[in-house]
């Protein structure tokens, strides 16, 4: 894939990362190269192969539905940039 096909603006937007024009150009072209490299995987016939998400097969891991100790509200908020009334403050979402 050539870098012109890689829409860096679109993908950076999906990833919620603001890029300056210089970063857009550099990352766009590097990602074009990397995608060119990973195209290598197309050489393989994988039609009869199961995809693998984890190396160790574990079935659903469940625990008893009981309350466990957890951090306090104050501790949970201690690293937040903005808090009020025991809550995280975010910009207005709904007009």
């Amino acid at each position: 894939m050539s870098d012109s096909e890689f829409d860096i603006k679109y993908v950076a937007n999906l990833a919620r990362i603001a890029l300056n024009p210089e970063e857009e150009e550099r990352l766009g072209s590097q990602l074009g190269d990397i995608l060119g490299y990973v195209k290598k995987l197309e050489e393989l016939d994988v039609s009869d192969v199961e995809p693998m998400a984890h190396a160790v097969p574990l079935d659903n891991v469940l625990r008893a539905d009981e309350v466990q100790p957890s951090i306090s509200n104050d501790e949970a908020l201690a690293n937040a940039p903005k808090v009020a009334n025991g809550l995280f403050v975010v910009p207005k979402i709904v007009e």
Binding site: A12, A15, A18, E23, L27, I34
Partner: peptide
Amino acid sequence: RGAGFGEEVKRRIILGT
């Protein structure tokens, strides 16, 4: 995220996305 992440992290998040 634009201000806080370094370039390699941005590159990988964008590739992964």
